[in-house]
Design a binder for these strands. Structure first.
Lengths: 192, 192
DNA sequence: GACTTATTAGGACATTTGTCCTATTTCTTC
DNA sequence: GAAGAAATAGGACAAATGTCCTAATAAGTC
């Protein structure tokens, strides 16, 4: 069972948008990678913005799946939050080359004043809500949401700096800092 | 004394590159804002990359001037670092709309695999070196450089999140967090 | 096997891109 | 004021862009 052309287009466009940026990626680029003719796109999508929309939809679905998987992998919220943090380590090569897929897309779409910016931010929102849920479980109460935003912000900063300097040691040292922060949050019940 | 055309081009291009991105800004856009004809560019610059180079050179010079001004405005390194931090407040409107000028440029050029990426990162380097100098004065020793990188990273994260959510309250709360962090750094001599 | 639908290739299309060329205007210097 | 240099406008240029159209092929259905 081979993937449908439509799915293939979305997959390849996703990668190209991430690695080269949305604006800088052309139909010709996607066509070359997918191996179809340029005119054939419009049987599957009615515009380039439509492809972006499908890419974001795919990212939302995949993010949901990832968060669900993290949710099922243990009953300790602190451990689940570590799964999020360690994304920085797991994806370090790509992050050093292209930054965070979500953060850089949001930044680019903000500058383009693109209609899809809100949906791109929604991906960030999935992480925020999920993290807030974990902090709530840890007894953070009303501080759960700010803590989630702070952690998200922290990882965005690490991604920007890591891609600017292509510095793997920096990622590791910041991840250690985040883990330390998490283990010593004064509002929460301490690590058992 | 009116600014030269060359200077005007660089100024307007700087703004457009920041607010709309480098790739998405065309010669026609710059020409329209400056009020000159498209063909006239090549009397002043030999390519679009040349304009980007001039824009980065200008940003480097202006950053140097700003850091020098901060340096002269008091003898307390902690106070000087606060000048850096409060940039987030002073420029919050633009940051919420377009992110950090330096961080977003570095991110975009990384994706474009552009030759000027290194020079864009050099702007970040000015801040890093200056901040490291302040931390050194505070007695941070070998920790000065990592602390500078951490602070830079923190502010980059705030800029990304602020532009994604256009959330002014978030900027204020994170700035408060940074100030608190600065006041309680364990390695350094405490606030007098 | 005939018929319909889905999928594809290939190219046309107007527009925009960065770049370059050539006149013409403006400024400077004697 | 004349001569030379600097600056500008306007358009030409090929290449690339997103979009659309049409004809051909493939797949699926009766």
């Amino acid at each position: 069972m081979t993937a449908s052309t439509r799915t293939l287009i979305v997959e390849k466009a996703d990668t190209l948008f991430y690695e080269g940026g949305f604006e800088a990626t052309s139909f010709a680029d996607i066509a070359a990678v997918v191996g179809i003719s340029r005119g054939n796109f419009y049987h599957h999508f009615k515009s380039k913005d439509d492809i972006l929309d499908a890419v974001i939809t795919r990212r939302i679905a995949r993010t949901r799946d990832m968060l669900d998987a993290w949710q099922d992998q243990g009953d300790d919220p602190r451990q689940r939050i570590l799964s999020f943090i360690r994304m920085l380590i797991a994806n370090r090569a790509k992050i050093m080359a292209f930054g965070c897929p979500v953060g850089t897309l949001c930044s680019e779409l903000a500058k383009l004043d693109h209609a899809a910016q809100g949906r791109a931010v929604d991906i960030l929102g999935l992480f925020r809500d999920w993290l807030a849920g974990q902090f709530r479980e840890l007894g953070a109460g009303a501080r759960a949401e700010p803590l989630a935003l702070h952690l998200l912000s922290w990882s965005q900063g690490v991604a920007v700096m890591a891609s600017a300097y292509r510095d793997e040691a920096f990622i590791h040292s910041e991840v250690a800092g985040i883990e330390n922060w998490l283990a010593n949050l004064p509002e929460l019940s301490p690590v058992p």
